[in-house]
Structure formats: C-alpha cells, structure tokens
Design a protein around this nucleic acid. Sequence first.
DNA 1: CATACCTGTCATGTA
DNA 2: CCTACATGACAGGTA
Length: 741
Amino acid sequence: MLSLKKYLTEGLLQFTILLSLIGVRVDVDTYLTSQLPPLREIILGPSSAYTQTQFHNLRNTLDGYGIHPKSIDLDNYFTARRLLSQVRALDRLQVPTTEVSAWLVHRDPEGSVSGSQPSSGLALESSSGLQDVTGPDNGVRESETEQGFSEDLEDLGAVAPPVSGDLTKEDIDLGAGREIFDYSHRQKEQDVDKELQDGVEQEDTWPGEGEEVLAPNLLVDGETGESFPAQVPGGENQTALSLELCLRLLEATCPFGENAEFPADISSLTEAVPSESEPPGLQNNLLSPLLTGTESPFDLEQQWQDLMSIMEMQAMEVNTSTNEILYNNPPGDPLSTNYSLAPNTPINQNVSLHQASLGGCSQDFSLFSPEVESLPVASSSTLLPLVPSNSTSLNSTFGSTNLTGLFFPPQLNGTANDTAGPELPDPLGGLLDEAMLDEISLMDLAIEEGFNSVQASQLKEEFDSDSGLSLDSSHSPSSLSSSEGSSSSSSSSSSSSSSASSSASSSFSEEGAVGYSSDSETLDLEEVEGAVGYQPEYSKFCRMSYQDPSQLSCLPYLEHVGHNHTYNMAPSALDSDKQMSRDEHRARAMKIPFTNDKIINLPVEEFNELLSKYQLSEAQLSLIRDIRRRGKNKMAAQNCRKRKLDTILNLKRDVEDLQRDKARLLREKVEFLRSLRQMKQKVQSLYQEVFGRLRDENGRPYSPSQYALQYAGDGSVLLIPRTLADQQARRQERKPKDRRK
DNA sequence: CATACCTGTCATGTA
DNA sequence: CCTACATGACAGGTA
C-alpha cells in the first residue's frame, strides 16, 4: 500500500505539473483528499517542466495551486479531472518496470519566429536545431532518416480513427507526468527514473547546444475565445509550441540493456498512426501510435510492460462519464475547420513539441520554462524548413526517436495501416492477430485440460520412485552386485531362473556332471527333474519386481495390458519346478554343479575360479557359458526394456508439461494482446487530446493530416510535419532490423 | 484362431 | 580378444 500511495502521489504530482503547464491551477488536494495524501508538490520552475525526473524531487514545493470551482477554467478543470483519473490509473498499473511519462508543454517566449515558409508544414524545428541535438551522429542519422521516410509511412498501421472532427478541447492539455506502474519493481523504476533524468539533462542541454528550434508562441484559444496572454515577444507569429512530452509509455527497464538506446527505439508509439478506416466518429487524424498494427522496433519487453500498464490503466480508469463528456466532441466539431490551415499560412517551423507552447499555457509559461525563454532567438529566427529537403537535419533530432511516424495521420499515408511493412516486420505484429491467437489458445487449452494433472503427478511420482532404468535401481535386477550373486543363492538375484536353480543346483552338484546336451536335448527336462527342495527365500528372487503392473495403471494407454510383468516371478514355491527357466532345466539336465545364479552373476574372476574347482566336460562348460551369456543378456534385455519404457514415460511427461506451458503462454499472450489493445487505445486518446489542443500562432488547431506528434526517445514530443514523421517512422523501423544483425 | 503383449534369446555393436 | 552391456529383431508363450 505504501508503494501504491507513493505512486499515486507521484502521479498527482505529474498531473499537477501538467495542469500547471497548461495554465490550469488545480488544487489536487481538494479533489483527491479522499484517496490521496495532501499534495503539496507543485512545480514552479520551468526547468521542472523540462526535467521529468524533477517531478519526483519537487515535492514539498507545491504551493497548492488551486482552481476555484467558479473559475473560468472550469473546462480545464474537468479535463484535469479526467486526466487525473488517467494518471491515477497509470499509477495503479501492476506491470513492473513499466514507465509512463507524461508530456510537458512549455512555451518558449523567445525565439518566436514568423513562419515564413508556407505549406511546408509546421517545421517545428530548424535544421540547425535538430542537428545540434543529434550532435555528431547527425550525418549518420540523416542518411538513415532519408531512406526511411517514405517507407515508414507505409508501415504505419494507423488504426486510430481520424481525429479531425473530434477535437473539442481548445486548450492543449499537455501535462507532464511520469508514471511507474510496477510496484514490485521499485528498484527498476528508480533506475528508469535515472535514465529519465539523464535524458532530461541531455534535453536541457539542447538549447544551449544550438537547438534553435523553438518558436515561443503562445496559443490563443480561437474556439473558446479565451485569450491566452500571447506572450509572443515582438508579436511574432511563430507558434513555438514547446511541448515536451514525457510520454515514455514504452520505456521500461529493459533487461536487454537497450534502454541506453531508448531514444532511438521509441518507435512503437511512432508507428501508431490512426487509420482513416476507423469509424467516422473517431478522430481519424489523430493517430495513436499504439493503435497501429505495426509495432516499433521498440523493445518488446518494454512494450509488454507498457501493455500491461495500459491494461491496468483501463481497469483503473474512473470518471469515465466525465471523461466522455469532455472528451467526446460533438459532431461537426469546429476543429475540422480549424485544421484547414491555409497552405500559405506561415507556419512556425521551429515548433516542436519538445518546446511546443500551448495556448492555454501561455500565461504561465514564463514561470515554468525560463529555460525556453532563454533559448537563443537565432534558432527561432532561423526557421528551418521542414520540407523533406531538410529531413536530414530533422533526422538528427528525430533519429533518436522512432516515434516519428507514431502520430502520423492516416490521411497522409493511406498505406500506413495496410502496408505494415513486410520488410519491417512488427515485433508484436504477430501478436496482434488476436482472433487467431485466441483460437490457438483455446485449442491448446483444450489440450491442456485434456491432460489429467493427477495422472501427471502420479507419473511423476512413479518416475521419482522408480527412476529408471538405471542399474542402480534397487528394483532393477541388474542392481545386484556381482558379489552378492556369487556369495550366496539367497542374494537378491534378479534372475528367477538362477534362484530357482539354486535348489536344483545342489542336487546337480551332487549328481555330478552330465554329458553335454544341446538345447534341444535339454528341453523338457522338467519331468526328469526330481523334487526340488523348497526354498523359503524363493520369493525374494522375484524378478522384474520393478515392473509392478500396478505402477502402470496410471498410464492410460497401458491399462489395457493385463500381462504379468513379473517375468518369472514364482507364483508359489511348490511350482518352482515349472518356473525354472530353460537354462535351469538344461543345467540340471547337464548336472551343472552350481546354480545358474552363480553362473550368471559371478564376476569373471570368481566365475573362472568356480569353474576351475570342478571337473567339467566340454559340454557342461559350453552350457555354463551359454547360461551365463543368456542370463546376462536377459537381464540386459529387461533393463533395456525398462529403460525404454521409462524413456517413453518421461517423454510423455515432458510433452504434457510442454503442453501445459504452451497453454499457459498462450493465455498470457492473449492477455497481453488485450492489454496492448487497451494501451493503444489509451495512447490514441491521449494523442488525440494533446494534438487537438495544440494551436498555431493563430490559435487554430493543427491539421492532423499535415502534422503529427513525434515522440522522442528523450521523452520529448515534437510536432512535426507528417511527411517528416513518416520518414522518421520508416527509418526507425529499419533500425531494429539492423541491430539484430 | 488371430491378435497383442510379454519375455527370452540371438546377433550385433559399443566400451 | 575378452567381458560386460545395450539394443533391435525374432520367436515362443500366454491371455
């Protein structure tokens, strides 16, 4: 519970940060006192917006930003509540090591640059800025990016419905939140946090490094008419949407150690592009990365974890009614109209979500993003065309992120969903076919159910008790030590014949050697044999006792076998004569002076010594040798058969175990798929909401068909032209392949 | 009587 | 080469 509380608190913190960033002042305590401890953490510093990790460290700094019920920001308030619920849900995720980061939006007061380049799309970042970000890797990334752009689009499996009409939220609800879902892996989470911090730090360094991307434009809510103090310096039109999305949904502790490469791996989200094929009611333009059928090269484990997280989120989701009200846009949403950006409309090319400013946030941005303000204006002034020609520069920035294609609107690339690249197989693609999986799983489950666990356990016990064919087994006839066999007839000889002959041998020995007779001759010596003294120990010589039929009863396919597996076990001492083996009869007929048991089981040395003690004819010696050979071979055959049987049983058990495991894995797979689907839906909704709240310098929403949010590996989210995003996505998809090689 | 199974035995190979 | 062992194949016994 403590951990849960902690997580919830963190979630609230993040949520609060988010709200504060968008200009909504919410006193979380007011709303959540019932469930959560007093939330006092407020992020006042702009750097905090940048630094995700600071969220966790900023506790006790919250001054209780509160939103008055009568506040004009009631809309935001409701939105906040909805988001809060989501945050809560995120906190409750049970998936270990799953980390969901929220997005931070901050305005870049400075660096606003009038978008002089029309129709190039919102070049959110200048080439220079991008290059700076990427640093030395730029050259490499550029090439990669260029190649991947067009292809990636094809692979984008946009499942999400077009967003265009749904966006009712005028204000961008970009909040910074980072959630850790794994309660059991707190340590891992901490590690992740560390990573995040590192990433943030790196991010912070960007501006100084020459990222001149940001155009600090404040957004004015054109729809609501709410005027956000446009703090755009100089009244420049540049919509420097400095939106930092810390939405690291898929970032999790990667056992494979790929976290280090995380920035470049966040492709899963990138690939999620809403498909236009979605129902009309859906927001087609806003593509949710997770909804796409194509999976990013992203770490599978992370995806799984995220998936689990989403599942949790779904389960925990509350305030649905409120959410729906706020979230669903009425038909004929104004956004559609808003999206129609005049081709000539100057677009701030430096707008990147990384530093994207939200209309609603403009007021408070200065407080939260001083860093942004301090960003070199040169970057903003230098609008880098987002046109493909500049893709290289963008690549450097996006190269680290696979999310480029994540938010691509399907419109741009109709093939996004359908052409989920054969060339770039989705890691999880196979998992997406739930129908198939379910079928398989059911099949396997049936198989599994068919297996009787009780029987299995019995088998196991049997194996354990009667392990095997090993000669060491007490049951095994071969277990007899040669010394025992030689020492006395009473030894637990494995051969009934030898034991039976023990009594006879004495008589034979007394009678003396008999002429050699062939096997055929020795046949039917039973009548000739005189009364054989009863030997109480006889029962001890039962052979094949290890093959107690009762043990086989557990095997269904052996139950029908009613044969006596006790071999020559004597039913009674009186029948001992008839139980004698042929060799025993022969030995008796040949008047062999010692028992077959000795003949068979004595060590070579002792055996030879024994033979030397007697004056045996050639026939007798031959018979003795044959008896020994056959006797040993008989035991060997028994052992061999037992071994074979054990092997079969073991195989059967293994098969059953594997079937169980398979069924279990299939069940888990189905659950994961389910979770993944939910997660994708969640991400889509979040994406749509964020995107819908973005406004250009004119306060108009961006067209999903022209722009997309790109999720960077460092946790930032950039608003980039779709073309670039597609290229990025394509490039990202290739990376994993190469890596595998 | 036919069949399936058990068991012993042989031949062969391996160590 | 001998010995011990393993194993496939065969055959006899049995239910």
